[in-house]
Amino acid sequence: MTEPTLLSGRGLGLSFGGITALADVDVDLWPGEMLAIVGESGSGKTTLLNVLSGRLTPDTGVVWYRDPNGQLHDVHAMPAPALRTLHRSDWGFVHQDPRQNLRMTVSAGGNVGERLMAQGARHYGDIRAAALDWLAQVEIDADRIDDLPRTFSGGMLQRLQIARTLVTHPRLVFMDEPTGGLDVSVQARLLDLIRSLVTRLQIAVVLVTHDIAVARLLAHRIAVMQRGRIVETGLTDQVLDDPRHPYTQLLVSSVLNA
Protein backbone atom coordinates (compact mmCIF):
# COMPACT_ATOMS: atom_id res chain seq x y z
CA MET A 1 0.00 0.00 0.00
CA THR A 2 1.32 3.39 -0.97
CA GLU A 3 -1.22 5.47 0.94
CA PRO A 4 0.19 6.81 4.22
CA THR A 5 -0.94 5.08 7.39
CA LEU A 6 -3.40 6.65 9.83
CA LEU A 7 -1.93 5.05 12.92
CA SER A 8 1.33 3.14 13.34
CA GLY A 9 2.84 1.46 16.35
CA ARG A 10 6.52 0.55 16.26
CA GLY A 11 8.38 -1.70 18.66
CA LEU A 12 5.76 -1.42 21.38
CA GLY A 13 6.65 -3.10 24.64
CA LEU A 14 5.07 -2.97 28.06
CA SER A 15 5.40 -5.12 31.13
CA PHE A 16 3.53 -5.02 34.39
CA GLY A 17 6.17 -6.05 36.90
CA GLY A 18 7.36 -9.47 35.76
CA ILE A 19 4.49 -9.98 33.35
CA THR A 20 5.17 -9.07 29.75
CA ALA A 21 1.97 -7.65 28.33
CA LEU A 22 3.41 -6.43 25.03
CA ALA A 23 6.69 -7.29 23.35
CA ASP A 24 8.03 -5.77 20.15
CA VAL A 25 4.64 -5.12 18.57
CA ASP A 26 4.36 -3.34 15.21
CA VAL A 27 0.91 -2.25 14.02
CA ASP A 28 -0.26 -0.27 10.99
CA LEU A 29 -3.69 1.04 10.26
CA TRP A 30 -4.76 2.74 7.05
CA PRO A 31 -7.64 5.21 6.71
CA GLY A 32 -11.05 3.56 6.44
CA GLU A 33 -9.65 0.17 7.34
CA MET A 34 -10.88 -2.24 9.97
CA LEU A 35 -8.18 -4.13 11.80
CA ALA A 36 -9.11 -6.95 14.17
CA ILE A 37 -6.81 -7.96 16.99
CA VAL A 38 -7.63 -11.50 18.06
CA GLY A 39 -6.17 -13.86 20.60
CA GLU A 40 -7.10 -15.66 23.77
CA SER A 41 -7.73 -13.75 26.94
CA GLY A 42 -4.54 -12.50 28.58
CA SER A 43 -2.72 -12.26 25.26
CA GLY A 44 -2.38 -8.47 25.48
CA LYS A 45 -5.16 -7.40 23.10
CA THR A 46 -6.73 -4.82 25.37
CA THR A 47 -3.35 -3.58 26.56
CA LEU A 48 -2.38 -3.01 22.94
CA LEU A 49 -5.63 -1.11 22.36
CA ASN A 50 -4.98 1.07 25.39
CA VAL A 51 -1.43 1.77 24.28
CA LEU A 52 -2.51 2.63 20.73
CA SER A 53 -5.18 5.01 22.01
CA GLY A 54 -2.78 6.76 24.37
CA ARG A 55 -4.53 5.59 27.51
CA LEU A 56 -1.48 3.58 28.57
CA THR A 57 2.14 4.60 28.06
CA PRO A 58 4.39 1.83 26.72
CA ASP A 59 7.85 1.09 28.15
CA THR A 60 9.34 1.04 24.68
CA GLY A 61 8.23 2.00 21.19
CA VAL A 62 6.18 4.78 19.72
CA VAL A 63 2.69 5.30 18.30
CA TRP A 64 2.30 7.71 15.40
CA TYR A 65 -0.99 9.29 14.42
CA ARG A 66 -1.48 11.26 11.22
CA ASP A 67 -3.94 14.14 11.63
CA PRO A 68 -6.24 15.33 8.80
CA ASN A 69 -3.55 17.78 7.65
CA GLY A 70 -1.04 14.98 7.19
CA GLN A 71 0.94 16.00 10.27
CA LEU A 72 2.39 13.11 12.28
CA HIS A 73 1.96 13.11 16.07
CA ASP A 74 3.64 10.90 18.65
CA VAL A 75 0.55 9.96 20.63
CA HIS A 76 2.37 9.55 23.93
CA ALA A 77 4.35 12.77 23.58
CA MET A 78 1.25 14.86 22.88
CA PRO A 79 0.26 17.37 25.54
CA ALA A 80 -2.70 16.17 27.61
CA PRO A 81 -5.17 18.78 26.27
CA ALA A 82 -4.38 17.84 22.67
CA LEU A 83 -4.83 14.14 23.38
CA ARG A 84 -8.11 14.84 25.14
CA THR A 85 -9.34 16.92 22.23
CA LEU A 86 -8.37 14.10 19.89
CA HIS A 87 -10.28 11.60 22.00
CA ARG A 88 -13.46 13.58 21.90
CA SER A 89 -13.40 14.64 18.28
CA ASP A 90 -11.25 12.68 15.81
CA TRP A 91 -11.20 9.49 17.83
CA GLY A 92 -13.75 7.36 19.57
CA PHE A 93 -13.64 4.51 22.04
CA VAL A 94 -16.32 1.84 22.29
CA HIS A 95 -16.12 -0.17 25.48
CA GLN A 96 -17.30 -3.70 26.04
CA ASP A 97 -19.49 -2.44 28.86
CA PRO A 98 -21.47 0.57 27.59
CA ARG A 99 -21.97 1.71 31.19
CA GLN A 100 -18.29 2.67 31.27
CA ASN A 101 -18.82 5.22 28.54
CA LEU A 102 -22.42 6.33 28.95
CA ARG A 103 -23.68 8.65 31.65
CA MET A 104 -26.38 6.57 33.25
CA THR A 105 -28.08 9.55 34.90
CA VAL A 106 -28.34 11.53 31.67
CA SER A 107 -31.00 10.92 29.00
CA ALA A 108 -30.17 9.20 25.71
CA GLY A 109 -30.28 12.53 23.87
CA GLY A 110 -27.92 14.13 26.38
CA ASN A 111 -25.54 11.22 26.05
CA VAL A 112 -25.40 11.56 22.28
CA GLY A 113 -25.12 15.35 22.50
CA GLU A 114 -22.32 15.47 25.06
CA ARG A 115 -19.45 15.20 22.59
CA LEU A 116 -21.03 17.92 20.46
CA MET A 117 -21.36 20.20 23.47
CA ALA A 118 -17.80 19.42 24.52
CA GLN A 119 -16.75 20.62 21.09
CA GLY A 120 -18.59 23.88 21.62
CA ALA A 121 -22.04 23.27 20.12
CA ARG A 122 -24.30 25.81 21.85
CA HIS A 123 -27.53 25.53 19.91
CA TYR A 124 -30.08 23.33 21.68
CA GLY A 125 -32.19 22.72 18.57
CA ASP A 126 -29.20 21.58 16.51
CA ILE A 127 -27.93 19.27 19.25
CA ARG A 128 -31.38 17.77 19.62
CA ALA A 129 -31.67 17.24 15.87
CA ALA A 130 -28.26 15.56 15.73
CA ALA A 131 -29.23 13.30 18.63
CA LEU A 132 -32.48 12.31 16.90
CA ASP A 133 -30.64 11.65 13.66
CA TRP A 134 -28.10 9.41 15.39
CA LEU A 135 -30.68 7.51 17.39
CA ALA A 136 -32.40 6.74 14.07
CA GLN A 137 -29.10 5.59 12.57
CA VAL A 138 -28.56 3.11 15.39
CA GLU A 139 -32.19 2.02 15.22
CA ILE A 140 -33.40 3.45 18.53
CA ASP A 141 -36.92 4.87 18.48
CA ALA A 142 -37.07 8.66 18.48
CA ASP A 143 -39.51 8.68 21.41
CA ARG A 144 -36.84 7.13 23.64
CA ILE A 145 -34.66 10.27 23.35
CA ASP A 146 -35.53 11.56 26.81
CA ASP A 147 -35.34 8.18 28.54
CA LEU A 148 -32.51 7.29 30.87
CA PRO A 149 -30.09 4.61 29.66
CA ARG A 150 -30.98 2.38 32.59
CA THR A 151 -34.35 1.72 30.95
CA PHE A 152 -32.55 0.39 27.85
CA SER A 153 -31.71 -3.23 27.04
CA GLY A 154 -28.08 -4.37 26.72
CA GLY A 155 -28.16 -4.23 22.93
CA MET A 156 -29.74 -0.76 22.95
CA LEU A 157 -27.12 0.48 25.39
CA GLN A 158 -24.37 -0.72 23.09
CA ARG A 159 -26.05 0.98 20.12
CA LEU A 160 -26.46 4.16 22.15
CA GLN A 161 -22.76 4.05 22.98
CA ILE A 162 -21.97 3.75 19.29
CA ALA A 163 -24.22 6.72 18.46
CA ARG A 164 -22.56 8.75 21.21
CA THR A 165 -19.13 7.89 19.85
CA LEU A 166 -19.85 8.45 16.15
CA VAL A 167 -21.81 11.71 16.49
CA THR A 168 -18.66 13.79 15.97
CA HIS A 169 -17.72 11.78 12.85
CA PRO A 170 -14.43 10.43 14.16
CA ARG A 171 -11.82 9.11 11.70
CA LEU A 172 -10.63 6.40 14.03
CA VAL A 173 -12.56 4.31 16.53
CA PHE A 174 -11.15 1.83 19.03
CA MET A 175 -13.53 -0.97 19.91
CA ASP A 176 -12.97 -3.32 22.83
CA GLU A 177 -15.14 -6.43 22.41
CA PRO A 178 -18.17 -4.40 21.28
CA THR A 179 -20.37 -7.49 21.04
CA GLY A 180 -19.23 -9.17 24.24
CA GLY A 181 -21.96 -10.04 26.68
CA LEU A 182 -24.78 -9.85 24.14
CA ASP A 183 -26.86 -12.79 22.99
CA VAL A 184 -26.28 -14.16 19.51
CA SER A 185 -29.19 -12.57 17.65
CA VAL A 186 -28.50 -9.15 19.17
CA GLN A 187 -24.82 -9.61 18.31
CA ALA A 188 -25.67 -10.27 14.67
CA ARG A 189 -27.75 -7.11 14.38
CA LEU A 190 -25.11 -5.03 16.10
CA LEU A 191 -22.37 -6.37 13.82
CA ASP A 192 -24.51 -5.53 10.83
CA LEU A 193 -25.00 -2.03 12.16
CA ILE A 194 -21.32 -1.47 12.90
CA ARG A 195 -20.35 -2.73 9.47
CA SER A 196 -22.78 -0.51 7.59
CA LEU A 197 -21.97 2.61 9.65
CA VAL A 198 -18.23 2.13 9.40
CA THR A 199 -18.35 1.51 5.67
CA ARG A 200 -20.61 4.45 4.99
CA LEU A 201 -18.66 6.90 7.14
CA GLN A 202 -15.24 5.59 6.10
CA ILE A 203 -14.07 5.16 9.67
CA ALA A 204 -10.89 3.32 10.52
CA VAL A 205 -11.40 0.83 13.35
CA VAL A 206 -9.12 -1.10 15.65
CA LEU A 207 -11.28 -3.92 16.94
CA VAL A 208 -10.29 -6.16 19.80
CA THR A 209 -12.16 -9.42 19.99
CA HIS A 210 -11.70 -13.00 21.10
CA ASP A 211 -14.46 -14.05 18.73
CA ILE A 212 -13.00 -15.07 15.39
CA ALA A 213 -16.43 -15.01 13.75
CA VAL A 214 -16.75 -11.31 14.60
CA ALA A 215 -13.33 -10.64 13.11
CA ARG A 216 -14.24 -12.56 9.96
CA LEU A 217 -17.44 -10.58 9.54
CA LEU A 218 -16.06 -7.11 10.13
CA ALA A 219 -12.34 -6.89 9.62
CA HIS A 220 -10.30 -6.27 6.51
CA ARG A 221 -7.11 -7.33 8.20
CA ILE A 222 -6.39 -9.38 11.25
CA ALA A 223 -3.56 -9.57 13.74
CA VAL A 224 -3.24 -12.64 15.95
CA MET A 225 -1.70 -12.12 19.38
CA GLN A 226 -0.15 -14.61 21.74
CA ARG A 227 1.63 -13.74 24.98
CA GLY A 228 2.02 -10.09 24.06
CA ARG A 229 3.38 -10.69 20.57
CA ILE A 230 1.73 -10.49 17.19
CA VAL A 231 2.37 -13.96 15.78
CA GLU A 232 0.59 -13.58 12.49
CA THR A 233 -0.96 -10.75 10.51
CA GLY A 234 -2.58 -10.47 7.10
CA LEU A 235 -5.85 -10.19 5.22
CA THR A 236 -8.68 -11.69 7.26
CA ASP A 237 -9.70 -14.39 4.81
CA GLN A 238 -6.12 -15.30 4.13
CA VAL A 239 -5.22 -15.72 7.77
CA LEU A 240 -8.38 -17.55 8.74
CA ASP A 241 -8.54 -19.86 5.69
CA ASP A 242 -4.86 -20.61 5.54
CA PRO A 243 -3.36 -20.04 8.98
CA ARG A 244 0.40 -20.47 9.05
CA HIS A 245 1.40 -20.01 12.67
CA PRO A 246 0.60 -23.06 14.85
CA TYR A 247 -1.20 -20.88 17.37
CA THR A 248 -3.45 -19.40 14.69
CA GLN A 249 -4.15 -22.89 13.40
CA LEU A 250 -5.17 -23.92 16.90
CA LEU A 251 -7.34 -20.84 17.31
CA VAL A 252 -9.12 -21.33 13.97
CA SER A 253 -9.63 -25.06 14.44
CA SER A 254 -11.13 -24.51 17.87
CA VAL A 255 -14.01 -22.52 16.40
CA LEU A 256 -16.88 -24.16 14.55
CA ASN A 257 -17.52 -22.74 11.07
CA ALA A 258 -15.25 -19.79 11.63
Binding site: G110, G113, Y124, R128, D146
Partner: peptide
Protein backbone atom coordinates in the same frame (compact mmCIF):
# COMPACT_ATOMS: atom_id res chain seq x y z
CA UNK B 1 -11.03 23.14 34.74
CA UNK B 2 -7.44 22.85 33.56
CA UNK B 3 -8.52 21.92 30.06
CA UNK B 4 -11.58 24.21 30.03
CA UNK B 5 -13.59 21.09 29.24
CA UNK B 6 -17.07 22.21 30.28
CA UNK B 7 -19.30 20.20 27.93
CA UNK B 8 -20.70 18.37 30.95
CA UNK B 9 -22.26 21.52 32.40
CA UNK B 10 -24.08 22.05 29.13
CA UNK B 11 -25.30 18.47 29.28
CA UNK B 12 -27.02 19.43 32.53
CA UNK B 13 -28.62 22.46 30.84
CA UNK B 14 -29.63 20.26 27.90
CA UNK B 15 -31.28 17.81 30.27
CA UNK B 16 -33.22 20.62 31.94
CA UNK B 17 -34.52 21.99 28.66
CA UNK B 18 -35.52 18.59 27.31
CA UNK B 19 -37.29 17.74 30.55
Amino acid sequence: HGLADYGLMHVKLYEDISR
